[in-house]
């Protein structure tokens, strides 16, 4: 799996992401600067990592979404290429129009930095095939603006089309107000675009990939991508 990790000024999770990608896929990820207008040839997966691109000025992800490299990402996604956006990356994908909706300030206004439980809603997507449908995984979040919102129509469509892949839940896998850490519509933690090749999620699977991190629950996402690309090849 040849991955490209985008680097914007103010991004700070790109190395964790590159490390996780290397660990699981065995290949070094290419680091791609925001001013570049092309992705490396043969890229299988583009990752928009977390952090605080452009200091979160204006709106989270708003300025990064208009960077030159995003035109290349839009074209890549349009051709069916896999794109993963985590945390600030999810915000950037929403701002760039690759995903619907928006990430608003957390409902209780606090920055949340801790492990959370996610329910994997389906296992037939490239981004979830490393898990079982209904499986509960534990991965960290670290965000102040992770409250996913979209108009009612859009949320209905996301639900109807099965495009919600990850949802905040209790350790037992129950979805409800008490486990909805940031107030997101329908407890949404991660969604895909209509074609299913672009995933945005607030939690950080790349930070739970080795036993020393306390959990390896995040590995499944990357292993699933590797398996998907192997099958496609």
């Amino acid at each position: 799996m040849k991955s490209a990790v985008l680097v914007f000024p103010g991004i700070n999770r790109e190395r964790d992401m590159a490390r996780a990608l290397k660990l699981v896929s065995g290949h070094d990820a290419a680091m791609v600067w925001h001013g570049d207008t092309e992705l490396p040839k043969g890229t299988d997966l583009v990752v928009v990592p977390g952090g605080f691109s452009y200091g979160d000025y204006l709106r989270c992800g708003a300025i990064a979404a208009r960077a030159p490299v995003m035109d290349a990402v839009r074209k890549f996604a349009g051709d069916g290429g896999l794109v993963l956006g985590v945390c600030n990356g999810f915000q950037i994908l929403c701002e760039s129009g690759l995903l619907p909706g928006v990430l608003m300030r957390n409902a209780r206004l606090k920055f949340i930095c801790r492990d959370v439980h996610l329910r994997v809603e389906r296992a037939d997507s490239p981004f979830t095939r490393g898990y079982k449908a209904g499986q509960v995984i534990k991965v960290p979040v670290a965000h102040g603006e992770g409250n996913y919102e979209a108009d009612e129509e859009t949320v209905k469509r996301l639900e109807g089309d099965g495009r919600v892949l990850y949802r905040y839940c209790s350790p037992e896998g129950e979805v409800g107000e008490s486990s909805n850490i940031n107030g997101a519509a329908a407890s949404i933690a991660g969604i895909v675009n209509e074609r299913g090749n672009v995933l945005g999620m607030m939690p950080h699977p790349e930070n739970h990939v080795e036993p020393i991190m306390g959990s390896t629950d995040g590995r499944g996402l990357f292993e699933g991508l590797v398996a998907h690309l192997k099958k496609a090849a």
């Binding site: 709106r59 300025i63 701002e95 619907p100 909706g101 928006v102």
Partner: peptide, 9 residues
């Protein structure tokens, strides 16, 4: 339209 506002919200 291009930057200052996110017209979704």
């Amino acid at each position: 339209d291009k930057l200052l506002a996110n017209t979704v919200i």
